[in-house]
């Protein structure tokens, strides 16, 4: 096959439906590592600028036509079936990132909040924003060091029992895969049509 395009692994010709999962977390928490651990391509990085439509009414800092919010993120992908492909995004949880959430990540199946127990406070904001966007998520503790156990982390994050919280090692494919499987199981419950109002 010819030249440059053959260097990257192209999708199947039958690929027709792309899905998204977003991994959010603080600086250096292991987002790119996790994407790379399960992706069929080396993580690619790019960026987004906030467009006019993306400028939320809550963005009071924006000076008309002047300030540009730029957010860098990376992504990998997993071919699921003949027609379906899953994109995994690694994205920073800092404030300006949420200005481009709708532009980039509306329609995501769900999210993983990746946390480092040495800097739990970095994830408070992300959890708050995901709840705001009604985006279902699980929390994965990337174990750099021993640190507090999952129960202590759950307390520190004020995480309801309904949100799964798991330990992981983002460097390991099977461990990162388990996090995604946990998320999908959670999504099955989350999106299940309510059968009774009481349950």
């Amino acid at each position: 096959m010819p030249s440059r395009t053959s260097e990257r692994a192209a999708l199947r010709a039958t690929a027709a439906d792309a899905l998204k999962i977003v991994i959010v977390g603080g600086l250096g928490v292991g987002k790119t590592t996790m994407v790379g651990a399960v992706s069929e391509i080396r993580p690619l990085s790019t960026e987004e600028v906030m467009t006019e439509a993306g400028a939320g009414i809550d963005d009071t800092r924006r000076v008309r036509g002047k300030t540009t919010t730029t957010v860098a993120f990376d992504f990998g992908r997993i071919t699921l079936t003949e027609s379906k492909v899953l994109y995994l995004f690694g994205a920073p949880g800092q404030q300006r990132f949420w200005y481009v959430w709708d532009q980039l990540f509306s329609g995501s199946l769900g999210a993983v909040v990746l946390v480092d127990t040495r800097r739990l406070q970095d994830s408070w904001y992300s959890i708050d924003r995901l709840e705001h966007h009604r985006m279902p998520f699980v929390v994965a503790v990337n174990r750099f060091t021993e640190g507090p156990g999952v129960d202590a982390v759950r307390d520190a994050l004020s995480l309801p029992d309904t949100v799964p919280l798991v330990d992981c090692d983002a460097r390991l494919r099977h461990s990162s895969k388990d996090v995604l499987v946990t998320l999908l199981r959670h999504l099955t419950t989350w999106y299940a049509p309510a059968q009774e109002t009481t349950s």
Binding site: A15, A16, D17, A18, L19, K20, V38, I78, L80, T81, K84, L86, G107, S108, L109, K177, L180, V181, L184, R185, L187, T188, Y191, A192, P193
Partner: peptide, 28 residues
């Protein structure tokens, strides 16, 4: 353009779709 089906399903992903993704992920 082949648009994501998520754009067309207002009520969120269907149980069938989630199951399909789950099974595919378990097999990677």
């Amino acid at each position: 353009v082949r648009h994501p089906s998520a754009l067309r399903s207002a009520g969120g992903p269907s149980p069938e779709l989630l199951k399909e993704v789950l099974v595919a992920l378990q097999n990677i």
